[in-house]
């Protein structure tokens, strides 16, 4: 019925395309290999880990033994819960403070507006490591080190959120704000009930950006947290790999799998927001 090769042609697979797929598949294999190795090792018995030969699949199946061991050695669920608490706390304050400020910068004229925006642009360049020392000292003097509050404090203000939302709000039509004023809404109500809902794609993208950044952050937790029960996932992972686990790569990989899983799953479910959110810094 059909000419040879027509199936491939129908799939858009010319020789050139096939060559590109071959190359890209090789790249994808290299990129994903660490993930594969992590999961593989998490399901392997430890004697296989130390064998000098390479195997694609576990030779003996140990089920979730490594995961059980990981849970027994460190409060992994606690780490993840901490991550969730910290990320949601930070995000909530970031949105509640940045949205009104961005709206004021975008839609009102007031004295000092340009100065405020210049400061925002300056702060946009400054990484958390710069104010870290004085912040640490301030927390130390007030006795609030080693708390959820201390973990979140430097990130409550997101100048990036202010910058981003200002751009978004600026393009919101003045006519609709005028219509809302004529309809009798107050300024607060206009912001939260009319302007913010229409900015929800940007807010979702920012949320993903913020969650990714703070779920994965190690520097600040390393400084302010000393009790393991407050550790977010990266710090927990560090404790885990520090404790005498040299012999138990399986459990280590099981822990890594578990701590990476939430973001990976989130990513697979909301790829569009993710790519947008994580790269927003670049495409602004």
């Amino acid at each position: 019925m059909s000419r040879p090769g027509s199936f491939f042609m129908r799939m858009g697979l010319t020789p050139g395309q096939i060559a590109m797929h071959a190359f890209l598949l090789a790249c994808a294999f290299a990129m994903l290999f660490p993930f594969y190795w992590m999961v593989l090792t998490a399901f392997r018995p430890s004697q296989e880990v130390f064998s000098a030969t390479f195997h694609w699949l576990p030779q003996t199946f140990v089920g979730f033994d490594n995961f059980r061991e990981a849970f027994a050695k460190a409060p992994l669920l606690r780490f993840m819960a901490n991550g969730a608490i910290i990320c949601s706390g930070i995000l909530a304050v970031q949105l509640l403070t940045a949205i009104p400020c961005a709206y004021a910068l975008a839609k009102y004229e007031f004295r000092g507006r340009n100065l405020l925006f210049a400061l925002v642009l300056f702060a946009l360049c400054v990484p958390v490591q710069v104010p870290a020392l004085p912040l640490y000292m301030g927390l130390a003097f007030t006795g609030t080190l080693d708390s959820y509050f201390s973990l979140m404090l430097p990130f409550f203000l997101s100048v990036f959120a202010i910058f981003l939302f200002r751009q978004v709000f600026r393009s919101f039509p003045d006519d609709i704000i005028h219509a809302a004023r004529l309809d009798g809404m107050g300024e607060m109500e206009i912001l939260w009930r009319v302007v913010v809902p229409s900015a929800s794609p940007a807010i979702a993208a920012f949320a993903v950006f913020s969650i990714t950044a703070h779920w994965n952050d190690l520097y600040w937790p390393l400084i302010v947290v000393t009790s393991p029960e407050l550790a977010p996932p990266p710090l927990g992972m560090m404790y885990f790999s520090d404790t005498d686990l040299g012999s138990s790569f399986g459990a280590l990989m099981a822990a890594a799998t578990l701590l990476t899983a939430p973001l990976t799953i989130l990513f697979l479910f909301a790829q569009r927001h993710f790519v947008q959110g994580v790269t927003m810094t670049g495409v602004k």
């Binding site: 996932p233 990266p234 822990a255």
Partner: peptide
Amino acid sequence: YQIAFFLPVTSTLIAMATVWKYL
């Protein structure tokens, strides 16, 4: 491919660093 290549960006670097140490 976009998903495959972007996955490392979103993963928790500390966890993946331990994987790399092993690799």
